[in-house]
Amino acid sequence: MKIKRQKKKQIMLMLCILLILMTGKIDFGGEYTRLEHEYLGNRISCDVIRVVDGDTFVALLNEQEEKVRLIGVDTPESVHPDKSKNTEAGALASEYASGLLENQTVQLELDVQERDKYGRILAYVYLEDGTFLNEKLILDGYAKIATYPPNVKYVDVFKKAAESREQK
C-alpha cells in the first residue's frame, strides 16, 4: 500500500515537472529564454532594425534587439569573418533583403525550434503586405532551400517555389 502511494507521488511530481518544462515558465539560468510576446494569430509582430545579410536581420522584440534567422532558406555569404567566403551574390541578396526589410514591421512565425545554436530566433517572416519573405527569396533567385528538421513546416512551399524559379 505504501509503495503504491509513493509511486503515485513520483508520477505526479514527474508530470508537474514535465508540464513546467513544456510551458517554458522557468528559466534555468540558460543564456536564452523563451520569447514572451503577444501573438497575432500564431505570429509575432516586430520592428526590423537592420539587415545582417540575406537571411538574417536584427529586430526589436520585447524592447530588446534579437537576431532573426529565416527558416528553410539560405543565401550566399556576404558578412562571413573569412572574407574569401563572401560573394557578390551574397552582397546582392543582402541588398535585396535590406530593401524589403529595413524600417519595416514584420510578422514572425515560429516552428518547432525557437532558436538555433547561435541564439538567433528561427522564423518564417511575413512582410507588411502579407508577402511570405522566405518563399519570395527563393522565387526571386536570392536564396536556395535549406531545411533542417524539425523545422520543416513549409518545405513543400519552398520546393514549389524553387521549381517555379527553375522554370523561369
Rank of each mutant, 00 (worst) to 15 (best):
Q107D: 15
N151V: 00
G130V: 02
D53H: 04
G99P: 10
V51W: 07
S84L: 13
E36N: 10
I17R: 05
N103K: 12
I11R: 12
K159A: 10
Q6P: 00
K4G: 09
R115I: 13
F158Q: 11
V51T: 15
E63M: 14
A93M: 04
N151Q: 06
K153P: 03
N151D: 15
K67E: 15
G29H: 03
D140Q: 08
L40I: 15
L40G: 02
D82G: 01
L15A: 10
M1A: 15
V58F: 05
H80V: 06
Y154C: 01
E95A: 12
A161V: 04
A143R: 12
G24N: 03
K67C: 13
G41C: 00
I138R: 01
P81I: 09
L110D: 04
Q113M: 11
P149Y: 05
E38Y: 05
I145C: 01
M1I: 07
E36K: 12
I20N: 03
P150M: 02
A97Y: 05
Q64H: 13
R50Q: 10
E135G: 01
E102R: 12
G130Q: 08
D116R: 02
L92N: 12
I44D: 11
N103I: 02
R165T: 04
S78N: 03
T56D: 07
G99W: 07
E163S: 14
